[in-house]
Structure formats: C-alpha cells, structure tokens
Write a protein that binds this DNA or RNA. Structure first.
Lengths: 188, 188
DNA sequence: TCCAAATGGAACATAGTTGTTCCACTCTAT
DNA sequence: ATAGAGTGGAACAACTATGTTCCATTTGGA
C-alpha cells in the first residue's frame, strides 16, 4: 500500500470519526484529524459531497464484506445469524455512520446499496422461516431491519458506556432470537 | 391558546419536519415551512442553537408524557410495555428526531433527560425481572435501549414504506417480547 | 372601532465554509 | 543523490447562513 492509499485511508477513517460525531463538521476538522493538510484532502476528494459519498460507499463495502465472510447461507439459520453478528458488531463506527447522514445517504442508489448489503441476511431469514426455525408471522423486511437496528443500538449503547462492546454480540443475539421474556413464560 | 402560542407551535412543528429530514437545513426553510417570516422565527428563538434546544426539550416532554399516560407501573409488565408501545409509537417524528441531532443532543443534560424520560420503562423492566416475567440475564440498561431502539427502527421502517405504521406496535412487541424464533423451537 | 401586539420584508454587517491556485517543501524509490 | 510524486501552507474569491435593525402592515381583542 503506497503513500496515496495510506493518505486516502487516513482521510476516510478521520471522516468517519469526525462526521459521525457532527455531520456538519468542517473539512478542516476532517483534514486535521487525519493529520493532513486541507489542500491534500481536496486533492483526494474535490468536493465535500464526493468525500461523503466515498465514505458511505466505503462503509457499505465493509459491511457487505463482513456479512459475506460470515457465510450466512450455510448451516442452521440461528448459527448463521450468530456468525454474522459476531463479525459485524466489531465494525462499530462504520455502521453507525450510515444512519447518521440522512441528507446525503438518502440518495436512492445508496439506500438500495444498503439493502443489497443486507440481502444475504434477508435470504437467511427467509430460509429460517421456510424451515420453521424462525417465526413466520413477521415480515422478512421487518426482521432484517429489526436485526440491523439491534446491532446499531448495541454499538451506540456501548459507545455511551452503558454496556461493554464485548458483551454486545450476546445481548443482540439473545434479545433478537429469544426476546426479553423469561424462557419458562412461553412453555405451557 | 393565543397567537404567540400558535406561532411557537408552528415553528416547533415545522422544525421537527424540516430538521429531521436534513439537520443542516437553513432557518429560512424552517420559517417558510412554518408559514412564518424569518424575522418572527428569530423573535421566538434568537439563535439556531436555542431553537434546536427547545425542539429537543419539546420532543422529550412529549415522550415523557406519552410514557406516563400509559401507566407503566401498573399491572403485568408485559401488558404495561404493550400500553407504552401503543402510546409511544404514534409519536413517530418527534422520537426519531432525538437520535438524528447528535451534535446538539449530545449535551450532557439532554442525554440525562432522555434517560429520565425512559426511567419509568426501566422501572417496569426491573419489576419484570424481579417477578420472573422477564429474563434476568440481560442488563436493564440494555433492555431499555433495545426496546427504545426497536420503536425507533419501527418508525424509520414505516417511513420508508417497508411496513405499515399501524402494524408497528405488534411487530415491535412480538420481536422484543418473543424474539424472531418460532415458539416451538424453545420448548423441549 | 380602535389600539397595542404581532408580524413580515428589506437591508445590512459579519462570520465561516468551500473550492481554487501557486509555490516551496519533503519524502521515497531508483 | 536525485528526480518526481506527494504534500502543506498561504492567500484568494465566491457564496451562504446567521443575527440584527428598522419600519410598514396586519391582526385580534377590548
């Protein structure tokens, strides 16, 4: 990885940190955080819009890669979701950024790409409903959103120090898989 | 309710609509949406920061009132949460705004007020864990965040047209109470 | 009806961000 | 060591949002 690649990475990483804290932060701040001059920033991303676009696309790529590497199409669905959770939760900041930049992120094609990235999860959920391991009275779209939302919540909550990030995967899975009621409650 | 009160209300309502779509929208846009001159806006809220602050406080009040009116401290915990869900979900936009304005909302005292508003829910969860109706292996703080997050997710998802808002309370409750797995899976 | 409160528009100064250009510098690979 | 890519700083113009002031007009209640 040459110097340009490293500079680009620094800029994207800094942008994630700065812009997810304050989406209206100035480009100077981003450049400074990246340890780079504002001139250099403009050299890599000519306009603010292109920076944010690159940022969102980069985040989407990370999420999609993480999901794919968890092989959500293999084995029992609950196990598959466990693997996805364990892989995606550590991404933390990248994910949370996606829900914080509505004005730009709301571009139609980026919303589409978000759901494309989640498509393997949707397929796993469908598979689970078909084989009876997941309940069939919830729309697949809702289940996917609720699952993604739980991961997002986990990261936010961990960021505020209310839970430990290392506990997050277990909390997300327990909550989303079993719910918050005691196991014995349902058994007749 | 005199004219000033109505103007103030229009401004806050317009601000919710405009600023939750684009948190960096100009005050002109807010004033126009409210059907009011920019001068009048400044008369009620001298600076942008004061407007946003009033906005967040107003939203927090609405949430707190809604929760209180559902009497979360009475009856079986699951029923109580059902009532809270049915009451809070219709607030929609007000709630979603709270998670979209990090730069201002992150003021310490406003975060505290957010959790103060949710305190009755936290107490209901504690009560449920004590009487055995809710599982005891999840931190109360996590359960509260997960629950609030599910409501937020429901509103976002409904806003994008992926579910019907009228289905949202049932989806939230089923998911958070029972989880997404089939009921028979857990029974031995 | 009449008066005081409330409003809206226009004009203004200010401040901050953005994007550009130019030039001197510092690395790094050969 | 040296050439060339990469970088940083300074200075610039254009633009936009913000907050203020002043004044004419409208509104609603006594």
């Amino acid at each position: 990885m040459g110097r340009p690649d490293r500079t680009r990475r620094s800029l994207l990483d800094a942008a994630v940190v700065v812009l997810s804290k304050d989406s209206s932060a100035s480009l100077s701040e981003v450049a400074t955080t990246a340890g780079v001059g504002r001139t250099t920033l403009h050299r890599y991303f000519p306009t603010r819009e292109l920076l944010i676009r690159a940022l969102v696309e980069d985040a989407l790529d990370r999420v999609a890669d993480a999901i794919a590497s968890a092989h959500p199409d293999e084995g029992p669905v609950v196990d598959a979701l466990q693997r996805v959770t364990d892989t995606v939760v550590p991404l933390g900041p990248s994910l949370s950024f996606l829900h914080a930049e509505p004005e730009v992120y709301n571009a139609r094609d980026l919303i589409r790409r978000w759901y494309e990235a989640l498509e393997p999860v949707a397929q796993a959920v469908e598979r689970g409903q078909a084989d009876g391991s997941l309940r069939g009275d919830l729309p697949v779209k809702w289940v996917v959103d609720a699952y993604a939302g739980a991961i997002l919540t986990a990261w936010d909550t961990a960021d505020e120090g209310r839970i430990w990030l290392q506990d997050a995967p277990r909390l997300v899975m327990t909550t989303i898989i079993h719910g918050i009621t005691a196991p014995s409650t349902d058994a007749p």
